[in-house]
């Protein structure tokens, strides 16, 4: 059957969906906090000090600063990606929460928009936790680092969009292995979180510039390090394009799946 490609028209109902997710999250606050603070702390302490002992500076900044500013972006990516795949799929297919929602004034446009906002919100929580840890470790360059928070929201939107596409076409949880092994993990390893992409072959560098994580890091890194931010418009445009394109495709495919 042909998909309905009409433009998304979400309404205020999206906020009801967002609040529903927030309410569930608040019930599970303790494990969420352990995850949000614990994981980045381990990365920063373990890799930052461990590798940092061998690496004095990277791209002209202490290694811990380089790493922390990269992990803020990659953590926003993985948080939004997990939420928009495993959690969204659970609500859409396993728990049939969407079916219950669709019998109310909510539309599928509202529901997916609420999910998108929620994924970005979780990404912001995780970025905030890392920023807090990084501040305690003394690697944050100044107040301009607070711009990382709205930026993390945008990074969350950017990665939630394509991940929602995966949920729209998935039949089971295992399907997400493809997305993570072929998409998310390569981006995490190659996009400049742990080392500068300038060390990679030129072809790989070009490919990485097409993907969004490198652009996200190009913004978080100078913001955290207290350096001037270049090409803001370009990087923001890439993030917005992935968010908007991903969301539109996800909505069309989810309409085709559920509104039958």
């Amino acid at each position: 059957m042909a998909a309905d490609w009409s433009l998304p028209r979400p309404g205020r109902g999206a906020l009801a969906v967002w609040r529903r997710n927030l309410r569930v999250w608040r019930k599970l606050l303790a494990p969420a906090v352990v995850l949000n603070f614990g994981e980045p702390t381990l990365y920063l302490l373990g890799l930052g000090f461990g590798l940092g002992a061998f690496i004095d500076t990277m791209s002209g900044m202490p290694y811990l600063v380089f790493l922390a500013s990269g992990i803020i972006a990659s953590s926003a990516m993985t948080t939004a990606s997990f939420e928009a795949t495993y959690s969204v799929f659970t609500r859409m297919q396993v728990q049939r929460t969407y079916e219950a929602m669709l019998a109310t004034p909510l539309t599928l446009d509202d529901i997916l928009a609420g999910e998108l906002l929620w994924c970005a919100t979780k990404a912001t929580f995780s970025a905030a936790a890392i920023l807090a840890v990084a501040t305690l470790l003394g690697v944050v360059g100044g107040w301009q680092a607070l711009w990382v928070l709205p930026l993390a929201f945008l990074i969350g939107l950017c990665f939630a969009g394509p991940a929602l596409v995966m949920s729209a076409v998935s039949d089971n949880y295992d399907f997400f292995n493809y997305y993570f092994v072929l998409g998310v993990t390569p981006m995490l390893i190659l996009s400049g979180v742990f080392y500068p992409i300038e060390g990679l072959p030129e072809g790989a560098q070009a490919a990485i510039q097409v993907l969004p994580l490198a652009h996200a890091i190009a913004l978080t890194r100078p913001l955290v390090a207290g350096l001037p931010v270049n090409d803001v418009l370009l990087h923001v445009a890439v993030l917005v394009a992935y968010a908007a394109g991903g969301f539109h495709v996800a909505l069309a495919l989810t309409r085709r799946r559920l509104l039958v």
Binding site: R12, G13, A16, V17, R19, R20, R23, V24, K27, Q95, R96, T97, E99, A100, M101, A103, T104, P105, L106
Partner: peptide, 30 residues
């Protein structure tokens, strides 16, 4: 907005308690 639905298979929200299920569902109606 003016219809109530009891579907064939239950789709209560397992993330919530009984009273919360009613409250959260109400929020979908604004």
């Amino acid at each position: 907005r003016r219809i109530g639905v009891v579907p064939q298979a239950d789709n209560l929200d397992p993330d919530f308690r009984v009273d919360e299920n009613l409250e959260v569902h109400a929020s979908y109606f604004g």
